[in-house]
Simulated scan of single mutants.
Amino acid sequence: MSATRLAAADVHPARAVVDLAAIRHNVRTLARTAPTAEVMAVVKSDAYGHGLLPVATAALDAGAGSLGVAQLAEALDLRAGLDAAGRHPRILTWLFAPGAPLEQALLADLELSASAPWAVEELAAAARSTGRTARVHLKIDTGMSRGGARPEDFGELLDAAARAEAAGAVDVVGIWSHLACADEPDSSVTGEQLEVFGAALEQAAHAGIRPQVRHIAQSAGTLFHPAAHFDLVRPGIAVYGLSPNAQVASSVELDLRPAMRLEARLTVVKRAPAGTGVSYGHTARTGADTTLAVVPLGYADGMPRIASNAGPVSIAGRRLQVTGRICMDQFVVDLGARDTGVHEGDVAVIFSDGRDGEPLADDWAAVTGSINYEIVSRLGARVPRVYVDSEEQP
């Protein structure tokens, strides 16, 4: 076989190993946490970097009743992939601008969000063009100040939806919102948002609109706020085994299993004398005669450059850290002065489920001042995703 025909996983020195059994476990955990609600697994951004179709399939296998993605193009890809596999779940998508190809969305049987009358009008026009009724979720801004109609404008959105529904162009199947501070359980903001949401639901009922599902809870809402469960919950990061706030409760405490293990085979291992400058700018120097190892992952792969001289790495069972600046394609780790027994081809673990003391995505988030959501979802496309199923292993 020629090199050009080899699979990326066969030639690339790094890989992200995704355990589909962990995805299924997490979906079941979330379903138990919100037993009266349908679970909509959010698989946006290529399933937070884990791989859209494999994760979506695993989530459905575990009992997720529906799927959510932000972007219309990704929703169309997801529908095509699932249809090819003989599966046709509810898919909600919520980000599109005026002039989007909504006809394609309706022909693909997608459900779409509307935050303003213009969106309802364009969906109704697409319905008339295709002969397909648009299935719509009306969004109320309860305090996130992002998508959704402000409470004082929600009546106008309801009026537009009621007219389109009366004309047979639109079916309002959902009313929804998003929580801003649900990962801070002691914040009063969540209660305030739930009050606004409840008022919006009453307003919709008075306007003659009775949706099939009401939903406001993302991962943090699902895990920390039972009052936010309503008819459907939309967990995202928790599907991947990561806590929405590890300071409040860790993945272990929430019975979640991190699904991704990022690892790379060392490409260079060499001795270096004391005082050797390491990587660009020589922001690090060896303090003694030592051994340096090169890990073939860099900021083009999603490694945050701000983690230079800080990012945790596990090599040969030892917890180490990035030495010097992270480069576009690689970074260096100082293995120490002693004989390490480490060689080219040995595996460095960037993050995993934390067993055996290996770093977590949470640890990378901590040293970068970010969140675990960003650490996993920013992983570059050139890093192969390799899928395993620990439930099938002997």
Rank of each mutant, 00 (worst) to 15 (best):
A56W: 06
K44N: 09
G81M: 13
A100V: 06
L95W: 07
A41C: 14
L92F: 15
E38Y: 06
G86V: 06
D61A: 15
G68H: 08
T36V: 14
L60K: 09
P98W: 07
L95S: 04
R90S: 01
P35N: 14
G68W: 06
E38V: 14
R79F: 04
P54G: 01
D61Q: 15
L78W: 01
A37N: 08
V43M: 11
I91T: 03
L82I: 00
S45F: 08
A58T: 13
G81F: 12
Y48N: 04
L67V: 13
L78F: 02
L52F: 01
A75L: 11
S45H: 08
T33N: 14
P98L: 06
L82Y: 06
S66N: 12
D77M: 00
G99E: 13
A62T: 10
L72R: 12
H88Q: 15
A80F: 03
S66Y: 07
L76W: 08
D83K: 12
L95F: 05
A64Q: 05
A34T: 07
D77I: 00
P89M: 00
V69N: 04
A58I: 06
A64V: 03
A34F: 04
A47G: 14
A56V: 05
L78D: 02
D46E: 11
A64E: 06
A75S: 09
H88F: 11
V43F: 06
A85F: 01
V39L: 15
M40T: 08
V42E: 07
M40H: 03
G68E: 09
L72K: 11
G65H: 05
S45Q: 11
L60Y: 10
G65P: 04
A80R: 13
L95K: 09
V69S: 05
P98E: 05
W94I: 15
A47Q: 07
V42W: 07
G63C: 01
G65F: 03
L67H: 05
D77V: 00
E38A: 15
E74G: 10
P89I: 00
L60A: 12
A58Q: 11
A34H: 03
R90N: 01
L76H: 10
A100K: 05
G68R: 08
G63F: 05
P54E: 01
G81C: 12
